[in-house]
Design a protein around this nucleic acid. Structure first.
Lengths: 158, 158
DNA sequence: CAGATAGGTTGCAATTCGCAACTTGCTTGC
DNA sequence: GCAAGCAAGTTGCGAATTGCAACCTATCTG
């Protein structure tokens, strides 16, 4: 990535701070993972993660506010509430898996942790990578930032 | 992901909390991104991100402590210090790009932001995805957690 | 040798976190 | 149908974290 992102508008024009505003707080990723693992109820999150109840309430509210989870009271037991992933929330899967794989590789010396496998053949999923439009793996040095108008689009190139 | 991660050892046996311990604090990802963009010096990070100096010092120290950045005094100007990505730090690229792409898609309504392109052909990189060992795209429902001993390894399968 | 510069540190106010106790609306058992 | 218990929060309060501004110490430059 030889070029600096254009002109110090990092904070204003970059989507990373925006993403972090939704997901950057202390427990958000762990709640998200619990959601992917099928947890849905306040008490489930609470006892599973050991998070303080007020913080959990705050984070769930925030995730709902950002459209990552959907809050729905249960019909069969009206004390209960379900928090479910929206499509927007489900689209955080690659981020979550990438972060987990990195942690697995670098931060788990000795310990073992369950691994994500393809349900079809029970083989581990591939490492999440940055790839070109046609599937070549890319590294840091293959990348540039470009403004939308500088981008070669598919039509021009094919 | 039909199955719950085995037996509520989420916190102990999962690499996600470990990863978040290294990268989960407020400014860590933004500092990381600045690093990928070529920023190396304290004052560069500070004026670019607008982060408070004490927090920046704390975060840089932490990232160095986790082996994500390397701290090296400059030879030519001994007031200066260089912070550079280690290989471990560079391996956070997929996580960073995945998060950015998600933010780009869902949190940038209206605004435009620079886009990551392949330096070779100036075409945008592919969306970061979770894929099977042989390159099929996988979604939430194709995934399971497995303990290492339950995994089909490459030898058995080929 | 008088600034200016790079990379911090320190003090202090404001915010956030985390724990424990409490509340409110439901549901279940007897 | 009433007491007990459960789900999903809220409240109060002390502890930790964040952020701002000022200061400090080496080093470089004119």
């Amino acid at each position: 990535m030889g070029l600096r992102e254009p002109l110090r508008q990092l904070a204003e024009n970059c989507s990373l701070p925006a993403a972090l505003e939704a997901m950057g707080e202390r427990w958000s990723f762990l709640i998200l993972r619990a959601s992917f693992n099928g947890y849905r109820h306040f008490e489930e999150f609470q006892s599973e993660l050991g998070i303080a109840r007020n913080i959990l309430a705050n984070r769930l509210g925030r995730l709902v506010g950002h459209g990552i989870l959907e809050r729905r009271p249960c019909d069969d037991d009206r004390r209960k509430v379900e928090y479910r992933l929206t499509d927007k929330g489900k689209d955080l899967l690659p981020t979550l898996v990438a972060l987990r794989q990195w942690g697995e590789r670098y931060e788990m010396s000795g310990r073992i942790s369950p691994v994500l496998v393809d349900a079809r053949d029970h083989r581990p999923v591939a490492a999440v990578r940055v790839m070109s439009h046609d599937g070549r793996p890319l590294t840091t040095h293959d990348l540039l930032w470009a403004l939308p108008e500088e981008v070669e689009d598919a039509k021009a190139a094919e």
